[in-house]
Design a protein around this nucleic acid. Structure first.
Lengths: 168, 168
DNA sequence: TATTGTTATACTCTATAACTATA
DNA sequence: TATAGTTATAGAGTATAACAATA
C-alpha cells in the first residue's frame, strides 16, 4: 500500500531535519567505513528517503510512486515497459504499482491500437493535480538540502551522483 | 503513441542542464528526476552496491557483512547492541548476521563477566585474515570510483554525503 | 523496572520463471 | 518465435512485540 506510516511518524520528534542515526556511540571507531564511498552513500540515501517519506506522508506517495507519476507526466503515452525500464524497475514489479495508481485514480492504462499487447500510460487530471502538489513538496526537501550543503554543495553533489550512477 | 501521437511526441525541454535520459530509452525525459538529489542518490547507491557485490562474490561478503566485520575488528570487545546500533541495524536483525559470521568462523560472541546479559564481539584469526583481504578489494572499488570522478571528485562526494547523512 | 539477546512475525523491495494474448 | 503485460513466488532487508536471563 502506501508508505510506512509507523516509520514516518516515529521520527516526528526528531530534533534535526534529515536523519541522524549512528551518533549513538560516539566512542565507536567507524572511520574505516566513513572514509569509503559506499557507506556514507547508503546512509545518505536512507536519510533522504526517510525525510521524503515524512514530507510525503500526507500525499501518501512513496519515492517510487513519485518517480513513476512524474515520469508518466513528462512522457505521456509511453509503454508501461518503457516507463518501468527507464526507472530501473522490473516489469513484473511495476504491475502492482500501476494497479495502485490506477485504483487511486491518478494514472490510467490505455490499450494501444497499433500494438494491442501494450499499454499507453497517462496521468488523469487528478494525477496531474497531485503531481503539481508533489513537485512543490519535493522543492521544499531540496531547499532543506540546500540549507545543509549550500546551493553549490547540492549542485556539486547531484552532478557527482549522476556521473557515479551513469545516468547522464 | 497510438491514441494521441501529438502528445506522445511532446518533449518537455529541460531548462536547466542536460535532459538526455537514462541508458535504456534515451528518448525518455527524466530531467525532473535527475535534477533532484534523491533520484541520482538512489541510483548511485544501487550502482555502487551492485559493483560491490560483483567484487565481493568470491569472498561471499555482502555490504552489511563487510561493515559488521570491519567495525568489530576496529572495536573489539564491544557489545552486540553497540555494533548494531552504530551501523543503524536493528538488534533483532543483527542476530542472524552474527549467527552466520560465527557459523563461518569469522567472528565470535563472548559472554561478558561484568554483565552476563551482553555479548562481547571479536574477530577470529580467520576473520581478521578475511578482513585484510576484503579491505584490499574495497580499495580496488574506491580506485575505480577515482577513475570515474577523479581523486578530488571522490573526496568531495564523500564529504558531502557525510554531511547529508549526518555521520562523522 | 530496565536492558541484552533472542524469537517470531510481517511488510516492503526486488528478482525470476512461466503464463496469455498478441505480434 | 518474440514481445508486453501479468501472475506466482522466493529471497533479501527491515520494522515491531514479546519473552528469558540478567541487572
Amino acid at each position: 500500500m502506501a508508505l510506512k506510516p509507523a516509520r514516518a511518524l516515529r521520527r516526528a520528534a526528531a530534533p534535526d531535519e534529515i536523519g541522524e542515526a549512528a551518533a549513538a556511540d560516539a566512542s565507536l571507531d567507524l572511520s574505516a567505513l566513513t572514509q569509503i564511498t559506499g557507506y556514507p552513500l547508503r546512509r545518505a540515501q536512507m536519510a533522504v528517503f526517510e525525510d521524503f517519506n515524512r514530507r510525503f506522508a500526507a500525499l501518501e506517495l512513496s519515492p517510487a510512486q513519485y518517480s513513476a507519476l512524474v515520469t508518466i507526466g513528462d512522457n505521456p503515452g509511453r509503454k508501461q515497459s518503457e516507463i518501468a525500464g527507464a526507472l530501473g524497475i522490473q516489469r513484473p514489479n511495476f504491475v502492482a504499482m500501476m494497479d495502485e495508481l490506477e485504483r487511486r485514480g491518478l494514472a490510467e492504462r490505455l490499450r494501444s491500437d497499433l500494438d494491442r499487447r501494450s499499454h499507453a500510460l497517462l496521468l488523469t487530471p487528478a494525477g496531474r493535480a497531485l503531481v503539481a502538489r508533489a513537485r512543490a513538496v519535493q522543492a521544499e526537501q531540496e531547499e532543506a538540502i540546500v540549507q545543509t550543503l549550500g546551493p553549490e554543495g547540492r549542485k556539486t553533489l547531484v552532478g557527482l551522483l549522476r556521473r557515479l550512477a551513469k545516468i547522464e
